[in-house]
Nucleic acid binder design. Structure first.
Lengths: 236, 236
DNA sequence: AGAGTTCTTACGGATTCAATACGCTTCCCC
DNA sequence: GGGGAAGCGTATTGAATCCGTAAGAACTCT
């Protein structure tokens, strides 16, 4: 995600910090609005409709937590909370309040910009349709959840599709069964043979000869890898 | 994050400190460039494109703050600032200046290495593939776990791959069997002949003539060393 | 020449993966 | 509801692979 035309509202009462951070955001290509207290923040947010809000927790007037709460009542903008407090409890509290990320002072403006980009990436992804992938004669379209092999459609199950999608998006990269079960299944633990079996079933459908796979290679002692040897960079 | 093939630029005018820190970074697997003053630092940074810069604040010529500012104008490399001053205000000032972390003298080189790793971890994307290494006709790609010798792929086992990766990332450095078994196997003790045998098996696959090895040299009474005699600095 | 170090080979055990089978749940259509 | 099919996760078996150790040969340095 590039900063492009994104608008960030920076709510911070300490002028020095505010200036430095604003410069960094501008340099990174964002448009920046500023507010020094809670009420102004809400007013500016309503009128400018920012794509993201950076919110100091200590503010004159309404404090950050309250501003966050009220923002959430009227709009669904992502919020990054900035605070001088750094305990674990505070962090959890901040996130529970509805902040999408949490930064403690003193912080590096560079890091803050990275987090802004990361949060925006996350929140943009949720709505943007994912592009389809193409590799090795296989075309996978997440929007319609269809896969074709040299033109003819394949009937994949949910798991099979998700697994293939994950691998095709990251061709030529090995993933352990643990990584796969975490990424595709969303589990933190579980029987890893689940992955083995699903790879097997997937191969049965996409490989010309499932016994000697050409697409999903097994890397002994490590995991699996989708091989995209050739030509076309897959992106529609 | 493991050091992979990351390149660090170390800017430090005190030779003793510089040497110690460089050794630690090398041991940790980083590639290290060095500069002793501000102007050299900028020049080296431009040509080598490091993944991170360690910057002493007190420097002859341009001081650290100024170097940091100028770096930031042209590239977006993370910076760790090293300084003799240690007050809280300085720390904040340093971070506000754009440093991503801040270390005060006297510092432990070990801690510095940890911070380097931490900063890199933050600035690197989650599934970003580690850069591959190339040396002496050999190309090793950690992401796909493949190795090619002048283009044709080699079939290495897990141990062989890990061993080769470790050595190739630290070319021209000798490692004892103890160090290798600790780093590659993760053991604190064990039969050292394990290393010997695996080096042998590895040579069988990568050396033109395994009996008179050109790549993995044995240093009698000490250990093994991967020789990168030639030209190209290994970076994909 | 001798002691210490490294090379080389061989082998049994352990790990890993493929392949199949089975029970459970879900969904659909009757 | 009820029968049946399909998908999923787990367990089991068997085979291929890899790994660590041992033990003797070859080598290096003094």
């Amino acid at each position: 995600m590039d900063p492009g035309n994104r608008r960030v509202l920076l709510v911070e009462d300490e002028q020095t910090i505010a200036d430095v951070v604003r410069d960094y955001l501008l340099k990174a290509g964002f448009q920046v609005d500023m507010a020094a207290d809670g009420f102004t923040a809400l007013k500016v947010a309503a009128s400018r409709q920012p794509d993201l809000v950076i919110l100091d927790r200590m503010l004159p007037g309404l404090d950050g937590v309250e501003v966050c709460r009220r923002l959430r009542q009227t709009m669904s903008v992502p919020v990054i909370m900035v605070t001088a407090l750094g305990t674990e409890d505070d962090r959890i509290l901040g996130l529970e309040m509805g902040a999408d990320d949490y930064v403690t002072k003193p912080f590096s403006p560079r890091e803050l910009v990275l987090r802004v980009k990361s949060v925006l990436r996350r929140s943009v992804k949720e709505f943007a349709p994912e592009p389809s992938v193409e590799a090795a004669g296989l075309e996978l379209d997440p929007a319609s959840r269809t896969v074709t092999h040299n033109g003819n459609p394949l009937a994949l199950t949910v798991r099979e599709f998700d697994l293939l999608a994950f691998l095709m998006r990251r061709p030529n990269q090995v993933f352990s069964r643990e990584e796969l079960i975490k990424a595709v299944w969303g589990w933190d633990f579980g029987d890893l043979s689940t992955v083995t079996v699903h790879v097997r079933r997937l191969r049965e459908k996409i490989e010309a000869n499932p016994t000697t796979p050409e697409l999903i290679k097994t890397v002994w002692g490590v995991g699996y890898r989708f091989d995209d040897t050739g030509g076309g960079h897959g992106r529609q």
